[in-house]
Nucleic acid binder design. Sequence first.
DNA 1: GGGCGCATGTAATGAGTTACATGATTGA
DNA 2: TCAATCATGTAACTCATTACATGCGCCC
Lengths: 174, 174
Amino acid sequence: MDSRSLLLLGMLKAQSRHGYQINEFIEHNLRDLIPMKKSTAYTILDRLGEAGLVSMVVDQEGNRPPRKVYSITEEGERQFRQLLKDNLEMLDLKHFEEDVGILLMDELPIAEAMAALREKLRRIELEVNKYEKVPHHEVRPGVDMAIDHHLSLLKAERDWVLRLMGNLRTKTQV
Amino acid sequence: MDSRSLLLLGMLKAQSRHGYQINEFIEHNLRDLIPMKKSTAYTILDRLGEAGLVSMVVDQEGNRPPRKVYSITEEGERQFRQLLKDNLEMLDLKHFEEDVGILLMDELPIAEAMAALREKLRRIELEVNKYEKVPHHEVRPGVDMAIDHHLSLLKAERDWVLRLMGNLRTKTQV
DNA sequence: GGGCGCATGTAATGAGTTACATGATTGA
DNA sequence: TCAATCATGTAACTCATTACATGCGCCC
């Protein structure tokens, strides 16, 4: 999962930051899109430093805890560009987990399967509502695009589940 | 990722099998849907055995390599049912990886971003073609459903990329 | 005689999460 | 003084993949 490295490089490309700052930014701006834990950021920053993709300077103001401020290096920018292109080309819809359930669905009484699908539908609606309420984001045009992407796939999923439920219903009635 | 356990339990619910047989079945029937490695199956079967969800009998014919034949237990069936319901309810579109690229897209010259998206589109088409060619599957009705699911999301992804490219194009021309 | 099919695994590796640990400042 | 915020990490754990290991039977 190099996308985490890509994200950090991208944030450092925009401006130098220390680890805490990065985690703050993610929590405040990307919390709905990026499920990355704080300790992970610290670990990856170390890794990027060892690889020479970022440089680090310690900055201490008064008695406050020292900050490690990271900046992207030239090599880091090159790598970033390549990683980003690779990522944009990438196709990696991994709904394998969900497919297993679909695959085995016929092992469940239809009534129970339908109940489960209704619950799933409810969850999809909740997600859709949540993302539709997220306000327009000015700093990063990408945020809006990513949310739009999210919504597109959520709606496709919703349509598919509805179609599936329709099929099951007619099958039962026949 | 409990979906692997779920899959194995489901296969054993349909009929008792030994490990090699399970791997064969997956390779022949589910190879396009399930990216599970053979050694993983053996490990999970052990784990399920320890948890009392499957029982095991060794079966040796002549001098051929001994087979460990697994059967699902009553507790296993209960667990299976619950896992399956949970799985069907689950909503877990994790396109986080792809979203990172979208999020950072504005760091790339538009021409390069467009080229990457064209490549992505090409890959989507390849996948769509591949899945549309998969013949109707009789044994497990679920296989057809899972493939249909796959195709739905692929097409949604394709539409979204096309829309995005359209937007980028008009933006550049203005 | 050599390779494929049958049949089972183990050990090392990787990538990330969880839980834990630390310690100063700031505000109620 | 008590909690929250700032700021950093380490260690253990989980889960799956990769690579490696073994050995017999069968067919050409």
